[in-house]
């Protein structure tokens, strides 16, 4: 059970949060211009890394804000947490 440092509320138990998959996948601004393959790349293709992974999380049972997390999936260590729109920390 992680202890997650919500950038708006502080440290809270994992059960207050919802994981939202890979981060930094921007919705295409002009979807109609894309080929089926390009759209599928956005729609379906997600990484599943053993190691450092960038993820979206939502404080669903708290402030309901979305934010980003850098997590090492091999040992679940949370390396960094930053707000939506902010640049990911340098590796």
């Amino acid at each position: 059970m992680f202890l997650i440092n919500c950038p708006y509320c502080g440290e809270r138990d994992q059960q207050e949060f919802k994981a939202g998959g890979e981060a930094h996948i921007e919705r295409p601004k002009q979807p109609t211009e894309l080929s089926d393959d390009e759209w599928a790349e956005y729609l379906f293709m997600r990484k599943n890394i053993k190691g450092i992974q960038f993820e979206r999380w939502n404080h669903a049972h708290g402030c309901r804000k979305w934010f980003n997390m850098v997590r090492d999936t091999s040992n679940d260590e949370i390396k960094a947490i930053y707000k939506m729109g902010e640049k990911p920390p340098a590796q």
Binding site: K18, G20, E26, R27, R56, N58, A60, R64, K65, W66, M84, G85
Partner: peptide
């Protein structure tokens, strides 16, 4: 509600 909030916060802030 969750889905609408997600789009508002992340795609269309």
């Amino acid at each position: 509600l969750g889905k609408l909030e997600d789009y508002l916060q992340t795609e269309w802030p």
